[in-house]
Amino acid sequence: MNAGKLLTEYSQQHDLKILSCYFDALKSECKTFEIRKNSDKGFQKGDIVTFKELKSSHSTGSSLLTGESLTAIITYVTNYEQKDDYVVFSFQLVSYKE
Rank of each mutant, 00 (worst) to 15 (best):
G4V: 05
K5W: 02
L6A: 13
L7Q: 08
L7S: 07
L7G: 00
T8M: 10
T8D: 11
T8S: 15
T8C: 10
T8I: 03
Y10E: 13
Q12E: 10
H14G: 04
K17R: 10
I18D: 00
I18F: 00
L19H: 14
S20R: 08
Y22D: 06
F23T: 01
L26Q: 00
K27Y: 08
K27M: 08
K27N: 09
S28C: 08
E29V: 02
C30V: 13
C30G: 02
K31N: 02
T32W: 01
T32H: 03
F33K: 04
E34M: 07
E34W: 02
I35W: 06
I35R: 10
R36A: 04
R36P: 12
K37V: 07
N38A: 09
N38T: 05
N38I: 03
N38Y: 09
S39L: 10
S39W: 03
D40I: 03
D40F: 06
D40M: 06
G42V: 08
G42W: 06
Q44Y: 04
G46D: 09
G46C: 11
D47I: 04
D47R: 01
V49D: 01
V49N: 02
T50D: 02
T50K: 15
T50N: 13
F51V: 11
L54C: 10
L54I: 11
L54V: 07
K55S: 02
K55A: 12
K55N: 08
K55H: 09
S56P: 03
S56E: 12
S57T: 10
H58S: 09
H58N: 09
H58K: 12
T60V: 12
T60S: 15
G61I: 06
G61S: 10
S62M: 14
S63G: 04
S63L: 02
L64K: 14
L64H: 11
L64F: 06
L65R: 13
T66E: 01
T66C: 08
G67A: 09
G67R: 04
T71Q: 11
A72N: 01
A72C: 12
A72V: 03
I73V: 15
I73L: 05
I74S: 07
T75E: 13
Y76K: 11
V77M: 10
T78N: 12
T78G: 10
N79Q: 14
N79Y: 05
E81P: 00
E81A: 11
E81W: 05
Q82R: 13
K83C: 07
D84L: 14
D85W: 04
Y86T: 07
Y86W: 11
